[in-house]
């Protein structure tokens, strides 16, 4: 086989494997039939319209947004000072801190979820929404530390000394000359965190309760009962949302520099 043809075939197969499911979902969501099926039966937008009518979807979407926005904001509130300390000072346990912060990426989500449920929620009757919030914060933290650290490392530290010698306090120097220069890194970390949190399943699966559910979990349970194409329609909408966010991030921030 000709090597060019071979590599073109491999490329096509990989692309088909990655993009195929997305095309199937989009097509299935536009079906006029009553059940989730591919190829779609006819064409209609009724399942897309139905997504907006299901009340539990609205509630779980609100919960997912709250976790994604709030959890990511909390992770950045912790992550920015942590990144600053790790990149500017030679800390005695700096490497250890870096490793601990990265752990939520390495430990399988299912273990994190089970652990939180078994040792936090059950014994202490801990509020499940708060547990979810803490879990999402912890899951997003590694990304925020990594991305913010990367932009801090690209920034000279002597500009802070320059600001101090021009009359600024140390804290003032941080807000006046460090923050403005790592702003795009922070925004990139926010977007990455948002997407990570929004798409999170295993941890959220364990930390669900009456009226407390994230959107992906709600979709799973909806499908167990109702096998109609509205789940496909919702998936397609979410996929377009993610694509839109990442596209805008790349367009305005050069997102790929940070990730």
């Amino acid at each position: 086989m000709n090597p060019r043809l071979f590599s073109a075939t491999v490329l096509f197969l990989v692309a088909a494997f990655l993009i195929g499911p997305f095309i199937i979902i989009v097509a299935a969501s536009l079906s006029a039939g009553e059940t989730l099926a591919f190829p779609p039966q006819g064409f209609s937008l009724k399942w897309v319209a139905k997504v907006f009518e299901v009340e539990s979807f609205r509630e779980s979407f609100a919960m997912s947004m709250l976790l994604a926005v709030g959890g990511t904001a909390a992770a950045l509130t912790l992550g920015i000072p942590a990144s600053y300390a790790l990149s500017r000072y030679h800390l005695p346990f700096g490497e250890a801190v870096r490793t601990v912060v990265a752990l939520p990426i390495i430990v399988p989500g299912i273990i994190v979820g089970l652990a939180l449920l078994r040792y936090l929620v059950v014994p202490f009757n801990f509020n499940i929404t708060l547990a979810l919030f803490l879990a999402h914060t912890a899951l997003v933290l590694p990304y925020s530390v990594r991305v913010v650290s990367a932009s801090l490392n690209n920034l000279r530290s002597d500009i802070e000394e320059a600001a101090v010698l021009l009359g600024s306090s140390r804290a003032g120097a941080f807000f006046r000359v460090v923050m403005p220069n790592i702003r795009s890194g922070i925004l990139a970390a926010f977007i990455l965190g948002f997407v990570t949190s929004f798409n999170q399943v295993p941890v959220s699966l364990f930390l669900s309760g009456p009226g407390v559910r994230t959107l992906p979990i709600d979709m799973l349970s909806y499908m167990e009962i109702t096998y109609d194409p509205s789940v496909a329609a919702l998936s397609a909408l979410l996929a377009f949302m993610s694509i839109g966010i990442v596209f805008l991030a790349e367009r305005f921030l050069g997102f790929s520099r940070y990730v």
Binding site: A162, L165, N181
Partner: peptide, 16 residues
């Protein structure tokens, strides 16, 4: 340092 009236021109210039 911020109250000394001492200026410093850094080797790397350290412009913002």
């Amino acid at each position: 340092a911020n109250k000394r009236s001492v200026g410093l021109v850094f080797q790397s210039y350290a412009l913002f």
